[in-house]
Amino acid sequence: MARILLILLATLFLALMVVLPVVAIFHRAFAEGWGTYLASILDPETLAAIRLTVIAALIVLPLNIVFGVASAWVIARYRFPGRRALLVLVELPFAVSPIVAGLCFLLIYGAYGPVGAALEPFGVQLMFNLTGIVLVSLFVTCPFVMREILPVLMVTGEDEEKAALTLGANGWQIFRHVVLPNISWGLAYGTVLTMARAMGEFGAVSVVSGAIRGQTMTLPLQIELLYNDYNATGAFAAATVLTGLALVTLALRGLLERFGPRRAH
């Protein structure tokens, strides 16, 4: 029967293409036992990479949340010239590949770029350090929060906000008491996506990080370094951290879809 055949085919495809690689990560990471695994994770360089990755993500998150909420709000609630252009610009980073994105930043904010060169006399360097990592991470995660909130704002409509307005609430009170509770699920999910993507970005970050061992290595870069150093176990052990993060992201999505409000399409 077609049904069984198709389900089988789909399952087989995902098992081979998606599940097996993930299983392979854990298999390799634990190939030499728990002791080696733990030692690999607790390696000072790997720990430093984890720390830097988390710090960068913690800077990216609030900035992206503020931007995501502001842009979703302005696109959902107002009609103004340039509104469509704004929407296109927010989505643009999806269409730019990681290496190209990194290069763009280097060309403008790097020492040879117009902005970078202008800032150099003041001793300000934007690339090959944490700032560079944060900037490109903001680029690659730019649409995530906005994309989750915009449909929610569209569906809930502005009646509640107008009601709050007639009751005398000011902008902040409307946001805090009416808008925020309505978008909280979308915001939470967008935040998780941003976090996962910011911590996992490889291509763009590798262009601008400078890749100084123990200093500007994020976790994905550290994985590459270990791998190329023929320290496969170390690389796969570090990879399990990011894989765990990805699995948590997916689990949260599942929970949201099951227990959260139905998401708008």
């Binding site: 690689p21 996992g200 994905p220 496969a232 796969f236 990011l242 894989t243 990805a246």
Partner: peptide
């Protein structure tokens, strides 16, 4: 899944 992880 981060692309570098997928890669290795």
């Amino acid at each position: 899944l981060p692309t570098a992880v997928a890669g290795i």
